[in-house]
Structure formats: C-alpha cells, structure tokens
C-alpha cells in the first residue's frame, strides 16, 4: 500500500515536471502554409490532422527537422520545421545573466543590457571607425592550446560525421591525431 502511494505520487510529480518543462520552453508560432500533422517526427508516420496557413500554434520542442506543436483545439503532433514561422522572440530569463556578464566587463556605468543597449554596429559606426591594432593583440591573447581543444571536443562528445563540405575531401578533422581519432569518427 505504502509502495503504491509512493508510486502514484512519483508519477504525478514526474508528469507535472514534464508539463512544467513543456510550458517553460513553449514558443509561439504560425504555419507558413497548410501542413500535415504527424504522430511521429517522420514523413512515413501516421497523420493526425492538418493545420491551416497562418494558424497559431505552440511549439513545444524540436527533433531533427520537426517541431512538436499543438493548437487551441488540442491537436498535438509533429510538423516540418520549415512549415513554421516563430511569432515572436522569447524574452529569456537568462538575459539577465548576459547583462551581468557584460557589465562585469565594462564596469557597469554606461551599461548594457539588450534593452538599454550596448551600442550598435551600423554603417554610420563603420564610417567613423579607426583601425584599432591593440584590439588585435587582445584577440591573439585568446588563442587555445590543442590539449584544451581536445578536452573540449571530448567533453561535448562531438564526433566527425562523414559529410562532404565543398572543397573539403578530407574526412577526418585536422585537429585530431591518429590516437585521438579513435572513437570520434562516425
């Protein structure tokens, strides 16, 4: 009995957690044109309905080139990602983090969030610009050692896929030596 209660409570908790996460990541969008909605993120999957052009949708998540979406009629399924256009930009809570990062750099007086504005970079700014050779020295100070880069690649579990990029017939990454190539070439 005790085990059963614990199981039910855990299930409710997990369901709420998933719903909360779905809610947190939801993005508003519209359909670019009339689109088929599938039960799974693939063309061969069963169709669950259609959505009309300009119909408002909630976008819950993405898997490869598919978005998991729903509408007000509770139609839920997968549509091709390029059939969708975002309706607006999400104001991320973590923007504050970026602002803090930038203000820690410049001292915070004249400063910068997206809304209050680090200054822009337009044609007029370019016209007034003067070459700043000292900034190149600063740029050069951020050089990465190969060992550090290798750690970064492994930590991210980044693997090389055999895809031809124009002008590049080399299939392996130039940064990985023979020993390191083991296990990272797919």
């Amino acid at each position: 009995m005790k085990f059963k209660l614990l199981f039910i409570l855990s299930t409710i908790f997990l369901q709420n957690l998933v719903l909360f996460q779905l809610k947190a990541e939801v993005r508003a969008g519209v359909l670019v044109h009339k689109s088929k909605v599938f039960i799974e993120p693939r063309q061969q999957s069963q169709m669950v309905g259609t959505l009309n052009a300009n119909e408002a949708i909630d976008i819950h998540r993405r898997q490869r080139a598919w978005y998991h979406v729903s509408n007000d009629d509770e139609l839920l399924g997968w549509v091709k990602m390029l059939d969708v256009r975002f309706s607006g930009v999400i104001k991320r809570a973590s923007e504050t983090g970026v602002a803090n990062l930038l203000s820690s750099v410049t001292g915070g007086s004249d400063l910068p969030t997206v809304s209050t504005g680090v200054r822009g970079f337009d044609e007029e700014d370019l016209k007034k610009a003067k070459a700043n050779v000292k900034q190149i020295e600063l740029l050069n100070s951020y050089i990465i050692k190969k060992e550090s880069l290798l750690d970064f690649i492994y930590e991210g579990r980044l693997v090389v896929n055999h895809i031809t990029v124009k002008g590049n017939t080399v299939k392996e990454s130039a940064v990985l030596d023979d020993e390191n190539k083991q296990g990272v070439i797919k």
Partner: peptide, 24 residues
C-alpha cells in the same frame, strides 16, 4: 587589417572565458 577596423568600430568583450569558449 580589416579586423582592426571592425574592432575599431566596437571593441571585443573583455571576458577571457567567453572569448576562449567561442574560440574553442
């Protein structure tokens, strides 16, 4: 030389951790 002008328009964010991450 072109980069010196771009960085003359607006400077780098002077944050080592951030720039190193983007470099990686």
């Amino acid at each position: 030389n072109m980069s010196a002008v771009l960085l003359g328009t607006r400077p780098l964010v002077e944050n080592e951790k951030l720039n190193e991450y983007v470099n990686k």
